[in-house]
Every structure is written in C-alpha cells, then in structure tokens.
Design a protein around this nucleic acid. Structure first.
Lengths: 148, 148
DNA sequence: TTAAGTGCAAATATTTTGCTGTCAC
DNA sequence: GTGACAGCAAAATATTTGCACTTAA
C-alpha cells in the first residue's frame, strides 16, 4: 500500500499549476483524494470518493484527469495483475520506483523498494541501449499471512 | 520479441493433454499459432490468425482458451504499457522469466533476461515472506534506434 | 474575453455469460 | 453416452468521443 502522502500535500496541484494547467474545482478534488489515498485507486473508486465531495462530478472528468496526470508523468498506471477485474489502478509517481506484490488469496497489495531493482534498471539501460522512462513491476503470489 | 518457440513444438498441447484437458480442433489451432508466434499476440490478433485456418472459430472461444491457459499457468498476460489500446497480450510462460521493454516511439517490444532479476525475486521472497507465483515486468522508454 | 474544461449521451473497446446444440473421449 | 466445449447473441465492464454549455485565467 502506498504511504499516505504526508510529505507533499497539494504537490500534484502545484506540479500541474507550474506547468500552466488550469485548476478547476473538479481537478482539485480528484488530485486531493489521490494525494491522501491509503491504497491504490481505480477510476470507479476515485469517482465514488469524488462524488462524496461534489455529487455533480462526472465519470468522464475522472478519466480525463487521469489521462492528464499520466501524460504529465505524475501518476503511474497499474494493473495489479487484474486481481479484481480488467480496470487500472493509479498511484502518484514515486521518487523511487517500487515493486508491487499482490496476494492471490487475500488481495492485499504490498510495495517494496530495492537497490537491486535500481541496478537492474541500470543494466537494462547499459546492455540494451534502452532509455527507461517508466517501469511497472507486478508480482502475484502469496503473502506471509496467506502462504501455507 | 519472443523467440519462435522452436524448442517445443506441440508443447502446450502436450501440457494440456497431460492435465486431462480435452483437445478440440479449435484449441489445437489456437495453441499451434501461439507456439509459432514471433511476437506478442492480443485476443484480436489470435482470432484473426485462427480464422485464416478455420473461419468458423469464434471470438469467445479465443477468450475461453486464453483463460484456460492462464489458469494452468501456461501463458502469461501482458499489457505492454497499453502502447496500443487497453487489451492484453499473451506469451507462453517461459522457463526463465524476462523483462519487457516497450519503445514509446516505434512500439517495438524487446525482452531481456537477467540474473539480477532472479536475485531481486529471491530478495522479495526472503525479505517480504512473499511466495512469488507470477511476475510481470514492463518498462517503457526509448530503444537504441529511437533515442536521440 | 476566450480557450480550456465539464457534463451528458452515445459510441467504442474488451471481455464475459446464458443458452442450445455438438463433439471428444 | 455424457460431460465438456463451441457458437451465437446479448450483457457486462471499461474507456473514449462529440457537442453544447460553463468557467478559470
């Protein structure tokens, strides 16, 4: 699970403003709830949370805002191995990228940072001549609580 | 791109038969083309190729066969960062797992095996007590030909 | 003021389900 | 022969688009 983003309140908003993106009431709400989320959210969850703050917010606006954030590299898109359907999950693009482990039994999603992963990326850049922009690492399996 | 699977002709079929799964004309066609594919295929591409061999094959049968193969752990599902739409791509589950690098400019997909990745998996298993069943590593960026 | 954003309805894309008839074993 | 499978139509799910109205800057 992502840490509640205590380190950067309003950071997403500030980033967008700095890039000259217009700030609307709807965007402020969506950005705000993504910043304080304690789990990975999909479009439907974002819509539901947003509507509690402003019932007139439309599903389409959620999708458009997510696309905007993706384009600006401010959020990452995850599938979490489609444990619960074919949609996507979103999280703020972290300073240091991490792996996602999704438990096939209880559905819990854990995150893990590793310098080995940083080394792996370095190896790919060097050995393949591939310039990495975004990474996505998802592992399915059984968490400590669920394995037998 | 996956190597043409010269090492294992009919292997998928044999695996399924060994598990007591019924072998139909349609499944034989779908398995056969997945084994000889020289790129990652999505459901639509599989359907089109299958219909060239048997025009009566239905889209639903393709989806059902893919689900069967996933359940048996014989194919892996990829998104390839949704470079071309929201569907999934499929590849035979390899002996040694590999990373996928998708070029954001030309769309080329490369694969890369690394012992660092094996070490990373070991670290996750040890440090998180997480028993890994399936992994998916996708990196978006610019390939050697496209980077400036 | 005006270009960018929103909501609404409808379209598109992807995948699944219910049911009836067929085929592998 | 029988239970698993295929095809067809329709539903379900996920996401995008066109357009007229609204609003941030």
């Amino acid at each position: 699970m992502p840490m509640p983003q205590t380190e950067a309140p309003g950071r997403l908003q500030a980033e967008l403003l700095a890039r000259g993106v217009r700030m609307t009431r709807q965007r402020r709400i969506i950005l705000g709830l993504m910043e304080t989320a304690d789990q990975h959210l999909d479009a439907g969850m974002i819509l539901r949370k947003a509507r509690k703050l402003d019932p007139s917010i439309n599903r389409v606006t959620v999708y458009r805002t997510l696309r905007l954030l993706k384009r600006h590299g401010l959020v990452d898109e995850l599938d979490l191995l489609h444990l619960r359907g074919d949609g996507h999950y979103y999280e703020r693009h972290p300073q240091r990228e991490h792996l996602h482990m999704a438990c096939l039994r209880c559905g819990k999603v854990m995150e893990f940072e590793s310098s080995l992963f940083e080394r792996l990326k370095g190896q790919v850049e060097r050995d393949c001549g591939f310039h990495i922009v975004v990474t996505r690492v998802e592992m399915g399996g059984y968490c400590a609580d669920c394995r037998r």
